[in-house]
């Protein structure tokens, strides 16, 4: 019951800040649109680049969205109340990141359908692309949340966050883009999807401890 209350509160707050939450989604679309302009609108070229382009854009968009994840709660003091609450901070953080993914990550996954079409990504493989993003973007959300928890007390944290988190996201990028790329060529893409699934399990179980730890450190100062 309490857990549902936490998710409900976060969703209501998200609805109130919907303009801010739309930023990563818009960013995702614009960045993807830059590639044909910078390279060459040749459909054959775009088709080979599409998995990589969509994945890099999604990765950057998710990280941009994570920067303000704990900022308002840190500034108005509700984060300190969360520390005192009977529910452990790890659980609160897990739910918080998950709801944040629902309102920012999920729209990205849905929009990727449109972008895939614009980049001439083959339709028969689109299920695998969506699957890879569904498994991969939550991992990115959790990794971004680790960075957000460590930099929440810093004024220029938004500049530091990508430096901290981007190296950690490389395996997700490799397996995600590989799954989508192999599917486009008609190859088997089960192996990278399994890796993504395993990594998702690992991040969901371990990263809440790192995020909660980061928040505790940030609050003590």
């Amino acid at each position: 019951m309490r857990y549902r209350a936490i998710i409900g509160r976060d969703l209501r707050l998200a609805y109130r800040r919907r303009g801010e939450l739309a930023t990563p989604v818009i960013f995702f679309v614009i960045v993807t649109a830059l590639f044909p302009l910078a390279l060459n609108p040749d459909p054959a070229l775009l088709r080979t680049l599409a998995p990589g382009v969509i994945w890099v854009a999604a990765l950057l968009a998710v990280l941009i969205g994570q920067d303000r994840l704990f900022k308002t709660d840190y500034e108005d003091g509700s984060l300190e109340l969360m520390l005192l609450s009977p529910i452990s901070l790890e659980w609160i953080v897990l739910l918080r990141v998950f709801t944040h993914w629902l309102v920012t990550g999920l729209p990205l996954v849905i929009l990727s359908l449109l972008l895939a079409m614009m980049l001439d990504y083959p339709m028969h493989a689109i299920g695998i692309l969506v699957m890879s993003l569904l498994l991969g973007t939550p991992i990115l959300s959790f990794l971004g949340a680790i960075g957000a928890s460590l930099t929440v007390g810093l004024r220029r944290g938004f500049m530091l966050l990508p430096i901290l988190v981007l190296p950690l996201t490389i395996p997700v990028l490799i397996f995600g883009a590989a799954a989508a790329g192999r599917a486009a060529l008609g190859d088997h893409s089960a192996a990278p999807l399994y890796f993504l699934g395993a990594m998702l399990m690992l991040t969901v179980t371990l990263s809440p401890f790192a995020i909660a730890g980061g928040l505790r450190v940030s609050l003590e100062s």
Partner: peptide, 28 residues
Amino acid sequence: RTGDRASAILALVGVVNIPIIHYSVQWW
């Protein structure tokens, strides 16, 4: 002290990630 403890958490996250990064890069 805050810097020490925050970066210590990052170092631990990194050390869990290193084998995954290493393996994924090899696979790639």
